[in-house]
């Protein structure tokens, strides 16, 4: 599975964009508005095109690309209806759908009683999981997680992280769009950073967040620990490594200051 942008132009918002996203990596996208817009409505593209597995992509198909959006409303009242609604409008049929739903509920630590509940009585996180299940159940090949993490606690973040890895193993192309660099640093393998309609930089997430000068010069949000390391090394002559985990940071800091 591979999405390729070939010289994509859209107003002044995207200029000559050439990027490739594939399912062997978890892909992050920063400053994602226009990227998401043309992906969900390729007719907006004025020059160039997008190809999916080599075929020109000119009409959005929700059967192929699912967007998990925390802010999407519930369309129906009961939870089970909401889940089945998505499969129905996507024309997906499966005799084992009930079993699939139960497996997913279990994965997200939800009690099967939730299916009988009314949508608006759910907590925000429960609603998010129900939307996620409604989309996972018809097995889309590309899943876009739109700004997932704001407000998620540790336990749920771990569940989502594990889910993304599993989907990646199954060959699903995962895209995580976020304006929070700490989340992109933690969860993605590769990242595309858009700035003023162009790709400012793209590649391995670890590389990008350990060479942050270009990001700082363009006022792009950088992870806390990357900024700390950069400032300590550049302004104070320290020799810290770029780290993700606080335990590694503290070891480096301890060695450096004591």
């Amino acid at each position: 599975m591979e999405i390729k942008f070939n010289d994509v132009n859209y107003k002044t918002k995207l200029t000559d964009i050439n990027i490739t996203l594939n399912n062997s990596k978890i892909n992050g996208v920063y400053n994602y508005n226009s990227f998401l817009k043309v992906l969900l409505n390729p007719k907006l593209i004025e020059k160039g095109n997008i190809t999916i597995d080599g075929k020109v992509y000119n009409k959005y198909d929700p059967k192929v690309i699912a967007v998990i959006d925390k802010d999407m409303p519930f369309y129906t009242s009961k939870v089970i209806d909401e889940i089945l609604f998505y499969s129905k409008i996507r024309g997906y049929k499966n005799n084992n759908i009930k079993e699939d739903i139960n497996n997913l509920l279990e994965k997200f630590n939800l009690d099967s009683n939730i299916l009988k509940r009314i949508g608006h009585s759910l907590s925000e996180t429960e609603k998010y999981y129900i939307k996620l299940i409604a989309n996972l159940i018809y097995k889309p090949k590309i899943i876009i997680f739109k700004d997932i993490m704001s407000g998620m606690d540790y336990k749920n973040k771990k569940i989502i992280k594990k889910l993304m890895e599993e989907l990646k193993e199954q060959g699903v192309l995962i895209i995580l769009t976020s304006s929070n660099s700490n989340i992109l640093y933690e969860l993605t393998d590769e990242v595309v950073i858009f700035n003023k309609g162009k790709v400012l930089i793209n590649g391995s997430t670890n590389d990008i967040y350990s060479n942050i000068e270009i990001l700082l010069n363009n006022n792009i949000d950088v992870p806390y620990f990357s900024l700390l390391t950069y400032k300590a090394n550049n302004e104070k002559g320290a020799h810290l490594f770029y780290r993700k985990d606080v335990r590694d940071v503290i070891k480096d800091v301890y060695k450096s200051v004591s």
Binding site: D153, Y154, K155, K157, N182, P223, Y224, F225, L228, V246, R247, V249, I250, V253, Y254, V257, S258
Partner: peptide
């Protein structure tokens, strides 16, 4: 807090650990 499922924000976490070591 960690046991109850909360994420200690990175900079606070770092501060707490550094103060544990008296830095």
């Amino acid at each position: 807090l960690s046991k109850a499922g909360f994420i200690i924000p990175p900079m606070i976490d770092l501060s707490l650990k550094l103060s544990f070591y008296g830095i």
